[in-house]
Design a protein around this nucleic acid. Structure first.
Lengths: 219, 219
DNA sequence: TAGACTAATGAATGACTATTCATTCGTTAT
DNA sequence: ATAACGAATGAATAGTCATTCATTAGTCTA
């Protein structure tokens, strides 16, 4: 009978001290793995520190408390998503239509679109109703993305009486729904399937900007 | 200093026994309220039974264990969603287009589309990755709805080479995404807003069947 | 009404967990 | 090389919670 807690065998070469940021990241990554594997409530201090190959007391040393570690982990995930789409915005050779396409598709970048990461996201969403801080963290990053999407939609529909906020909201909702189905039905909602769903959505929404053939962009 | 556990004052009229089904439903409803308020991990036996106005031991009497109560609660939620759309299918005066519209819109029926119910759904989704049974329960009800949606899409596109499974998947994903945003951003994603989003989606997907003016249906 | 049956109770139990802090040990400066 | 510092440890603590079961009390039958 095992405990179910996987403890990475403490390395025999007994290096001990490490820079603060290294330890923080190490613990955050162990937390992500733990939540994916056992959920937030199953993510005990012993499980996280064991997986990180460190001792129990280390969390309070670097994060003060479990709650802080959980908040830091959500912030880390949010930053990871942010950098995925924000990286694409730096490329100023892209036309607005291409940018919109790229940002919408960035939700399915393998770095963030994989069973581990997505299930951690939904573990947090499941507590968002009564954990005000979780909502605040998610919101602060989402707002930024929403603004970018709205600006891009605006530039594709200059003069049209189309509600850009509504279109941006639709893109985000659809993307979120595909994420959820990717963990519920991973066989059907593969990365390729989700990308093709989003492509269909974008083409239906902006028929003048996106054409069928190569799943690329055409202005 | 309070415990934070709301105990419905035990009624003074000391009726005690009640039919099995009454107690089961009473406990399931208390569980739904508890999860919405404190999440699954905060849903202790003391919290559930206190809210139901019963004693701690009652859960093992009617459900054997906490896990069984949680499974029964998810099954209950699934049945509630099922009966919401299945009820609409009984009306055989409806044309296929009207049925598709009605089934898609049933996701936003106030009986199931409200902050309490939606947040409980996402509390379960958050654990679906490592609780195989949760996935099984949700899947068994979703499959049925998917079949109905696919059949309806099929009858609207007779002869067209359109992938009905993909369209049905799109409707379900979009619906799920709107649900998620309804708990993340309740101010923006109101019932009316979500309905209008879904209407836009359906019109874009079936331009020949759904027209703009009254947000109704036209064959 | 008495006796039998079963629903319901809730204190006790045992298992589990976040947090603390005295101690250990690697690193750096002298 | 050694002292001083601070990172890291993990056993101990204090608290929480699901489950059990001996007891209580409605309800039904004869």
């Amino acid at each position: 009978m095992t405990t179910g807690i996987e403890t990475k065998p403490r390395s025999k070469t007994k290096r001990r001290t490490a820079p603060k940021e290294v330890r923080r990241l190490q613990l955050i990554e162990a937390t992500v793995d733990c939540i994916a594997e056992r959920g937030i409530s199953g993510t005990t201090m012993a499980a996280v520190t064991g997986r990180a190959g460190l001792s129990m007391g280390i969390v309070s040393l670097h994060f003060e408390s479990k709650d802080n570690l959980l908040n830091a982990t959500l912030t880390h995930l949010s930053q990871e998503v942010r950098s995925t789409w924000a990286g694409l915005m730096k490329d100023d050779t892209l036309a607005p239509a291409e940018r919109l396409w790229a940002v919408a598709m960035s939700s399915f970048d393998p770095r963030i679109f994989n069973p581990t990461k997505i299930s951690v996201w939904f573990a947090y969403f499941g507590e968002v109703q009564y954990r005000v801080l979780y909502r605040k963290i998610v919101e602060s990053f989402d707002d930024e993305r929403t603004d970018v999407l709205e600006d891009l939609c605006e530039s594709l529909n200059a003069g049209d009486p189309i509600d850009v906020a509504s279109i941006a909201g639709g893109i985000e909702s659809f993307s979120d729904g595909l994420w959820l189905n990717a963990i519920l039905y991973p066989e059907k909602f593969t990365r390729d399937y989700c990308i093709s769903q989003m492509a269909t959505f974008l083409r239906a929404t902006f028929p003048a900007h996106f054409q069928k053939p190569s799943l690329g962009v055409s202005a």
